[in-house]
Design a protein around this nucleic acid. Sequence first.
DNA 1: TCTGGGGTCCTAGGACCC
DNA 2: TCTGGGGTCCTAGGACCC
Length: 418
Amino acid sequence: MFALVDCNNFYASCEEVFNPALEKTPLVISSNNDGCIIARSKKAKEIGIKMGDPAFLYKERVERGEIRMLSSNFTLYADMSRRVMQTLESFAPRMEIYSIDEAFFELEEQPDKRLREEAINLRQKVKKWTGIPISIGIGPTKTIAKTANKLAKKQADMGGVSLLISKTQIRTQLEKTAPDEIWGIGHALAERLKSKGIYTAAQLIDCDDSFIQKLLGTPGYRTVLELRGTPCFSCSGEAEKRKSIVCSRSFKQPISNALDLEMAIASFVSRAAEKLRQQKSHAKFLSVFIATSPFTQPYDSRSCRIAPPNSTAFTPELIRLAKERLRQIYRPQLAYKKAGVLLSDFCDEKTEQMDWITPSTENPKKNSLMQTIDQINRRYDKNAVQFAAEGLVNHLMGAQAQASLRFTTSWNELLKVT
DNA sequence: TCTGGGGTCCTAGGACCC
DNA sequence: TCTGGGGTCCTAGGACCC
């Protein structure tokens, strides 16, 4: 049996924990550049604000005080997530953290009544210990647990807990569920299904196996098996290492100047490499990409992939390579709105594969330099020490004008009670 | 005027091999 | 005149997720 725990309106709930007055007004959280809406409170959802809507659509209503808008505060959300996950973990050891606000559990088979009681109990503890409301869905596979969770959120009278266990319970629910509401079936596949006359999840699971595989591919077929009650996904337990690391941003103003672009790329590389070292990996590839706005013509997006001679996590080398290749894809007449870097194809920092010809660039001094910089930045502030190539790029990025304080991670920003 | 950021997995097609 | 069959590896792009 699987359970899915999902925090309700997570970012909005984090803000409300430290400022309960926010609960009175519909609350939305805006993206990095204060560009679009990435989270909404219950009230904001009720008045029809959509996920991903551009923020300017609501500017007037925000000014009139009908809607409250805050810039995203990921430092706060990440720390609140850690607290919720720790609380959950103390109740069920076989847990997989699936996203910042979701976790799966593998449960022992037990009577439905007991499952429900335990879920209700867990829900109360998380609310009491962290202030965050959660919903819990339980079912024989992860995909059914996901469906149960949606049901729990929709129907308030079920107390935030929903079980889909028996064949008839599951069947009845799937008859009421459109394919694109199923975890693993998105917009494109739902359209494909519609064109074949399939409008409910129940119709989908009745289809012939080879038909499904051909129409939806292997991932879609697995989803259908899961809906029929055959588990295809288990709980991975240990937190797995990332297979790729991206750092990218949209700019406040489009950039045409090569130097500004270089500094931005250098700072993205620096961030990404720091994450890479955190998980004790080295990367074999570094990609750099730059793009103009997709909302104005002509749209231009270019990228290039670079293989350092040996896999590495040494920021200065990665910055040097990135800057070199950036020059080749950059076109001075264009106005770039977004840029980023991607690190990929990782190996363990200790078991690095050398090639026969290139001399090893391994140098203990480089490692200790990186370690020292990371330690200083962890201890003091993110940018206490940075590379000269990064310049002063903050003015290129979004303002984050309306962000709340880092209540739980910064001594200077503790909540004041008066 | 103004439209996010960070991930995973799979597949088709090209280049290459014998 | 007639022009095979079976592989591997890589990559870009598409699909999905939050």
